[in-house]
Each structure stands twice: as C-alpha cells, then as structure tokens.
Nucleic acid binder design. Structure first.
Length: 300
DNA sequence: AATCGTTTCAACCGCGTTGGA
DNA sequence: ATCCAACGCGGTTGAAACGAT
C-alpha cells in the first residue's frame, strides 16, 4: 500500500519560514491550541503543509523552548541517556525540559559524536592490531567513560555487521522448517543483548545477577540471546570466531533470563527517569570529575 | 577582498504507529 | 478485519555562517 505525500499539492511553500508566517502560526496556535495540523494551514491562512507547521511549532516556536548553548549538565545527561536508549531523541528530549529532539539530535551529531570519536581514537592509537579489537578492549578496559561509550557502540556495530554477513552467506544452508518461524526474532535478540550488555546497563546486570541469583553473568546473558558466552565480546574483538554464530537462537530455554535482562534495562531507565524527576534533573557533575576525556570538559 | 572548505542547524523526507471509520 | 488519515520519529539535506588561506 503506497503512501501519498503529505503535501504534494503545487504552490505549497517550502524552505525557511518568514517572520509573518511565524506570527500567523503562533497567533493561531495560541488562540486554538496545537493539533489538527492537517487543517491548520488553511485555518491559519498559511501556505504551508501541516507537517511543516507542526515541525516549525514543536522545534522553534513553542514558548517553552530553551534557546542557547547546552549546559554541562545537559551535555552529561544526553551522554548518559544515549548510552541507555541510543538514538531515541524524543525520549532523551523528554528528560531535558525546553530542548527538542531535533536540537538534541543536531547537538549529538555535530558536537558529541565528534568528541567521542576523538576520544576513542586516542584510545585506539595506543595499541596494535585491528581497530575493532582495540575498540573492544577500550569498551571494557578504558578508564575513560567517553571512550568506553564510543567503543561500546562501535563494537556492537562491528559485531552486527559481521553477523549480517554471516547470516546472508549462510541463509541458503538453513532449512525453512527450522528457520522460518522464529529466525527473525531470534536474530534480533543478540543485537539487543549486545547493545545492552556492552553498555552501563550491562555492567549493572553483571553485578546484580552475580550477587542475587547466581545465574547471571556473560554466560547466562549469552545463552539468553542464543550466543556462546565468549561471543559477548567475540574473538577478533577479543574473543572467539563468528562461525559459531549459526547457533544463535538455539537456547530457547533462556527466554526468562533474557527477559529479566531487558526488564533490568528498563528499570535502569525508569530509575534514571525517577531520579531526574524526583531529585535532580541532571547527574551530579562530580561523577565525572576524574574523567580525563575532553568530552566531560567541553565548556571552557 | 576573494575564494574555498567546514560546521551548524532548520527544515524536509519517508517510514512506522495509532486510532477512528 | 481492513483501510487510511493523521501524527510522530529518526535520518538526511542544503543553505547560511564561519574560519582558514
């Protein structure tokens, strides 16, 4: 089923908004409230599509929008939240009053990503061998949180790429009878696992699982995701070979562990949300006081 | 002063989700 | 159950601003 363009009619204006257009939009929304964006342009006397109006309002004209540079607290919050939820800009924006998802996304892509890369590079140049191995080592060993963070994401990405190539090359050898019903969900599981396992959430899980039930740790999580334990950090990234990846999805009995792991991740995020809401919007600055990375000292 | 390369960010695009008919 | 309009989101684009030569 195809989708019709939101505004394919000719004569609809695009591009930067003029002050008069802004005024029309603001006046209308203040009088009638946001909503029904499809009809809004006509009712407000604007020669724009509704989508454009909504975007202009939510990203620029809304009265509660906070302009100006990001504070160190906001910076650190973005860093932490991104480590947990990834590129869920709207979720991150929800924790930063007055900031839009678009603004945070732009800030991440232009400022933070660059710094993270530089920090990761600084770690990588210290060693030898494949860059991936260094990233993996950095992910677990670096004393620099920012470099660790970058390395974690990069490691997960490299692993996902490796698996993708494996899956595509071995797809013809998998019989439809065994693979068809569950393959998609079970292939997705390791990526979720890896992302979480390589994050601070994973750290929490490792600690909590060992303490509480004795069935946690890499083995349980790896089994839960249907991955041999060593592949939590695979060999060329510091562990085993990828040939064993064909065993993904064979450990159905570990669903409970996997779910528990995901639940823990959500609890972590909920906890963070609670902390932000109940006590402080931002993590304490002194948490990062001993971080040697430029990322934590971006503001002179 | 002119040119070129880089950075920034507002705006657009396309896809997924949702809810009502 | 199905269709589809409306909405929201994340990725991408492109023009303006800025800096270097």
């Amino acid at each position: 089923m195809g989708r019709t363009p939101c505004c394919d009619s000719k004569g609809i204006k695009k591009g930067p908004w003029a002050p008069e257009e802004d005024k029309l939009l603001v006046d209308y929304v203040q009088a009638n409230g946001p909503g029904n964006w499809r009809m809004l342009p006509k009712l407000a006397g604007l020669n724009r599509c509704g989508k454009s109006c909504r975007l202009r309002w939510t990203n620029y004209l809304r009265p509660d929008i906070k302009r100006g540079p990001f504070t160190p607290e906001e910076h650190n919050s973005i860093l932490h939240l991104h480590a947990i939820v990834g590129n869920k800009w709207s979720m991150i924006a929800a924790q930063l009053p007055g900031r839009t998802d678009n603004e945070i996304k732009n800030y991440w892509n232009t400022h933070m990503k660059k710094q993270l890369r530089q920090d990761a590079l600084a770690v990588a140049v210290a060693g030898e061998g494949a860059a991936a191995a260094q990233l993996a080592r950095a992910a677990t060993a670096s004393s620099c949180p920012a470099a660790r963070h970058m390395a974690q994401w990069e490691t997960a990405r490299l692993e996902a790429e490796a698996r993708l190539s494996l899956f595509s090359s071995s797809a013809t050898t998998v019989t439809s009878a065994t693979a068809s019903s569950s393959s998609s969900t079970e292939h997705a599981a390791p990526d979720i696992f890896l992302r979480l396992w390589n994050s601070e959430v994973g750290d929490s899980f490792r600690g909590a699982a060992v303490q509480q039930q004795g069935h946690g740790g890499p083995e349980a999580c790896a089994a839960a995701a249907g991955v041999p334990a060593q592949q939590a950090l695979p060999a060329e990234l510091g562990g085993d070979d990828y040939s064993a990846a064909s065993t993904y999805g064979t450990e159905a009995a570990a669903d409970d562990d996997y779910q528990a792991f995901l639940d823990l991740a959500m609890e972590e995020f909920a906890l963070l949300q609670g902390r932000l809401g109940a006590f402080s919007v931002f993590p304490q600055a002194d948490v990062f006081a001993d971080a040697p990375c430029s990322l934590f000292a971006p503001f002179e």
